[in-house]
Design a protein around this nucleic acid. Structure first.
Length: 328
DNA sequence: CGTCAAGCCTGTGCTACTAA
DNA sequence: TTAGTAGCACAGGCTTGACG
């Protein structure tokens, strides 16, 4: 059930593509808002949603009541510039939360995926983690209002939500590719691991460059010490250095390695001018392999192999194939 | 081996938010 | 009001690969 959001998003976008109400060059925000606007608990740019796409995120909700719940007027239709771009509404089956997935957009003119700033892509994130990343609780405040009753439970901010990335490369070219990508495609080691390994790498490179010899034992000790450096907000804060009149600040960014980019030459099956849903196999996805093509005959289903995270199932819609079919 | 295109990598500009 | 931090990738230089 946990993937239900991504599947719904894919199916609805496909509908819109077929109807022609959007095309592969439309803004990615439009893809999501037109497809699933009513199922969202958070939209980062609520102003644009209303002005540009005529979607009122707060429709039917009263401004004064919202203020009472901690959402001030100026926030209603602002662009918050927080992570993530969209959050689906949560659902519950029995006592268990499902849904509530995160959708993050990445749009790029070239063939590589635009860099991730401050957020390292992962398979799961909880609302609590989102608050840590943002350094404030705006997203969880808004989501809690939209999720209403469901949010009145401690587990609400703790349960692990799936992360999906709506990615376009070669924007505005005939080579355009768009995919909804499972976060598992990017997360091959825990992100806490990434951070201290970065510092360790920096140290190693300096030792190498300056030809300084340090015993393997010392390195091990340093590694053990550095392994405690895991908190992104501490790493990214600007720092007071004694006597310094500037405060240096590290910015955490992540670039996607070609093997983690489903649109790279590693994965020739993801063709130009196509729209794809790329999911890690699970009992649900395997069921979906049968069901989705039955509902939407234009879809092709196949597997690609991620070097580190194994098989992923692709549901592919080719724009060109579709057009030729119409012509005939 | 030279040439050209595409891919990759790093640094940067600019904007808008939140919190104090 | 402003200091601090994050968002958006893109620009532009460098590297790699394909091809004759």
């Amino acid at each position: 059930m946990s993937m239900i959001d991504a599947i719904q998003l894919f199916a609805e976008i496909l509908n819109n593509l077929k109807k022609g109400s959007i095309n592969l060059d439309s803004p990615l925000e439009e893809f999501v808002i037109r497809a699933c606007g009513n199922d969202l608990a958070y939209i980062d740019n609520r102003g644009e949603a209303k002005q540009k796409y005529g979607f009122d995120f707060w429709l039917g909700l009263d401004g004064d009541q919202l203020k009472a719940q901690g959402i001030e007027k100026r926030l209603l239709y602002s662009e918050s510039q927080q992570f993530p771009d969209f959050l689906f509404k949560a659902k519950k089956t029995g006592e268990k939360y499902v849904g509530g997935s995160l959708i993050e957009l990445k749009d790029s003119k070239g063939g590589s995926i635009a860099s991730f700033n401050s957020t390292v892509p992962t398979k799961y994130k909880s609302l609590e983690e989102i608050d840590v990343i943002n350094g404030n609780n705006l997203v969880s405040r808004i989501a809690a209002v939209k999720d209403g009753k469901l949010a009145r439970n401690k587990q609400y901010s703790r349960f692990e939500r799936r992360c999906f990335y709506l990615i376009r490369t070669h924007k505005g070219s005939e080579k355009v590719k768009i995919s909804i990508v499972d976060g598992s495609f990017f997360e091959t080691v825990p992100k806490e691991h990434l951070f201290y390994q970065m510092f360790l790498n920096v140290l190693r490179k300096h030792l190498e460059k300056n030809q300084v010899k340090i015993s393997e034992e010392t390195i091990k000790k340093v590694e053990e010490a550095l392994s405690h450096v895991t908190d992104q907000t501490i790493i990214a804060s600007s720092q007071m250095i004694e006597k310094a009149s500037v405060k240096p600040r590290l910015r955490i960014m992540a670039e996607v390695h070609p093997e983690g980019n489903p649109h790279s030459t590693f994965y020739p099956e993801i063709t130009e001018d196509s729209f794809n849903l790329i999911l890690q196999p699970s009992p649900e996805t395997i069921k979906l392999k049968k069901e989705l093509p039955a509902q939407i005959p234009e879809i092709e289903v196949f597997s690609i192999h991620h070097k580190r995270n194994g098989e992923h199932i692709v549901f592919q819609f080719k724009k060109n194939a579709q057009l030729t079919r119409f012509v005939q």
